[in-house]
Amino acid sequence: MNLQLENKTALVSASSSGIGLAIAQSLAAEGARTIINGRSDATVQKAIAEIKQAVPSAQLEALVADNSTAEGCALTIAAWPEVDILVNNLGIYEAVGFFDESDADWNRLFETNIMSGVRLSRHYLQGMISRQQGRVVFISSESGVSPAPEMAHYSATKTMQLGISRSLAELTQGTAVTVNSVLPGPTLTASVEAFVQDVYPTLEPVEAQKQFIKNNRPTSLIQRFIDPKEIGNVVAFVCSPLASAINGSNIRAEGGLVRSAF
């Protein structure tokens, strides 16, 4: 399927690894000029090389900026004043009991998971609305609708992203701009794979992953971890003109883990 993303410029925050890298690769494979963002030149260049190997025709641009800070967002905006697609992917998580989560822990996740998307959207969405076209996507999580007790602060930020996304979508009424959230479920990034291995250190990786899903995410209908590429493909579609009727939506790509018909 041709997603008609040629001649579009896409910025994916935190796209040097994990889900962000997969999203960037999917957008690049569809012809979008894709800005690869990370905190260091080494990680950005490594990501560019990886995408180029998979998609030789990829049009890629490097952006070294820490978008978890106001200064980093300002640097991003100065380097790229205008984009057609903004994917707010930057986010961090940690498993900490609620009674052990300090104010500093809450503030750190809020600044990274919430304010990065707020600052970038505040700039780029205005331009999209004035041009009457564009896409903004927030990468939330199934934890946003099914909060994890061991990650109260993370879950809270993911729920808040859904509210922000819908509020911004209301601003696009009557235009060809859309703002949506995509909610991945357990996705096998390198960091998640390491986390699972720490939980089950005596098991081989494949068996450890099976046990984690069985014991920790038993309601999953697909009964496996999601491949980051699967999330990348969903996001690429949402960013395309083919998804023009999807606006203000929370798109669940969590393998049926959440037991809800809505």
Rank of each mutant, 00 (worst) to 15 (best):
K214V: 00
P205R: 03
N67L: 14
L162V: 00
L257Q: 12
R33N: 12
A236V: 02
H153G: 06
Q59L: 15
V136S: 04
R131D: 11
H153D: 13
D105C: 12
M115P: 05
S130Y: 02
W80K: 06
G248A: 08
L162E: 09
A156F: 12
I129R: 14
A95F: 03
W106C: 07
I23P: 12
L5V: 08
A24C: 07
M1H: 11
G31E: 12
T157P: 11
L188W: 04
S240Y: 09
Q132M: 13
S57D: 15
M128G: 02
V196H: 01
A156Y: 01
L75F: 01
R252H: 10
T76L: 13
I129H: 09
V55E: 15
S249N: 11
R108L: 11
S143W: 05
V196L: 00
D227Q: 14
L21H: 11
S16N: 15
S121M: 08
T202D: 15
L162W: 01
S40C: 03
T112Y: 05
A74F: 03
L242C: 03
Q211K: 14
A208Q: 12
I222L: 13
Q209V: 02
F98R: 01
S167M: 07
P56W: 12
F99Q: 13
V87T: 11
L90W: 02
Y200F: 15
V206G: 00
V258R: 11
A24P: 07
P184D: 05
Y200P: 02
V206C: 01
A78F: 00
L60I: 07
L86H: 09
R108A: 14
A28Y: 00
A65I: 05
L11G: 06
S130R: 14
L162I: 15
L109H: 14
L11A: 05
R166D: 05
S130G: 05
F195Y: 01
K8L: 10
S17T: 14
V55I: 15
K8H: 09
L183R: 05
E101I: 13
R166H: 12
T189A: 11
I114P: 07
E71C: 00
A47C: 08
A22F: 09
M151D: 09
I23G: 06
F237K: 05
V137Y: 04
E204W: 04
A24G: 11
S15C: 03
V199P: 01
V118E: 04
I231Y: 08
V118S: 05
P218V: 07
E204F: 02
I231K: 02
E71I: 02
E150R: 06
A169L: 07
D41R: 10
V96D: 01
N180Y: 05
K46C: 09
N37T: 01
L171G: 01
P149R: 10
A22C: 00
G255H: 08
D84C: 10
G255M: 07
D41F: 03
A169R: 08
T189K: 00
G163W: 04
S121F: 00
S167W: 02
R252C: 07
L221R: 15
Q223A: 13
G38I: 04
N37P: 08
S167A: 15
D84M: 01
